[in-house]
Design a protein around this nucleic acid. Structure first.
Lengths: 153, 153
DNA sequence: ATCGCTGCAAAAATTTTGCAGGTAA
DNA sequence: TTACCTGCAAAATTTTTGCAGCGAT
């Protein structure tokens, strides 16, 4: 069983694979980028740029560099942006060959996050697209609720 | 057929009904609030605070007042916030007796918006909640694609 | 008369950008 | 060498807040 067998699990991808993806597009592998990718790789859930910044040891990297890196990585399809409705962008690593499409269940009290594999029914989505004449349709879907721990006061 | 028969259509609700909802909670009906509600009532789709501000004739109202009003209206359940993934909050009027739960199909090129009545299957949502021990589960769902007009270059 | 609300101004928070120098390839 | 990248600083947005005065009830 190869490390890539869980192609939807970013943690299954080595840092070398990630930097290789940068190299292929003739983008440079720098200290800040290595650090960002490593932090994303070690976190299973969407992180804000500020959280990534805070996760850096020492002053490894400027906040502006993180913003710039996330733009690049997003454009390259290496990270995906998620919005939990609080007005702050969050990013998660996307494995090679995966489109990173999945959803989350977020606790409205403690912000605990559970990854959800269920998806909006494809047939219904296609029907919605056809009904309105839209093409290349996708969706963003996030669930919110109160987690088990937060139910007992 | 009464004006309220389309309880999901904000335009079916008169301004008097809206101000009445404020009155019931002993909130004051002021010029800015009347203007905001009127603008929301006349627009069928989510608006940003800045768009509401721009829709005002003359300098009717301060931008800060709009932010404060949206917080109040949201807390009162009179408006609902939507996020289209660009980091800007958008608000839509919610009719009395309605929870405002619906979704949108957004053109990624021209930002045209179509309201979508289809919803994530309730049974599947309940199963997701049960499977993870969450309660009071809800969801946010938005569709994105290329609209008919934007398909012909 | 009260209490809430508004405008104005200032601040906070998030995100973007210009530029000069540094570094990966 | 030559693009690309980074830090720093400044700016552009978006959103929040303090305060004195005004206004709805």
């Amino acid at each position: 069983m190869k490390a890539h067998s869980h192609s939807h699990d970013p943690r299954g991808e080595q840092l070398a694979d990630l930097t290789g993806r940068l190299r292929k597009r003739s983008r440079k592998i720098t200290g800040p980028r290595r650090a960002i990718l490593e932090i994303l790789r070690q976190h299973p859930h969407p992180l804000t740029n500020r959280e990534i910044f805070a996760a850096m040891r020492e002053g490894n990297c400027d906040l502006a560099t993180i913003y710039r890196s996330m733009h690049l990585l997003q454009e390259m399809g290496m990270v995906k942006r998620f919005d939990f409705g609080d007005g702050v962008a969050r990013f998660e690593l996307v494995s090679e060959g995966d489109d990173g499409h999945h959803h989350h269940l977020v606790c409205v009290r403690c912000s605990r996050i559970v990854e959800i594999e269920d998806c909006f029914p494809r047939e219904l989505e296609e029907e919605i697209a056809a009904r309105n004449g839209f093409r290349a349709i996708t969706h963003k879907l996030e669930f919110f609720g109160v987690c088990p721990k937060c139910q007992s006061p």
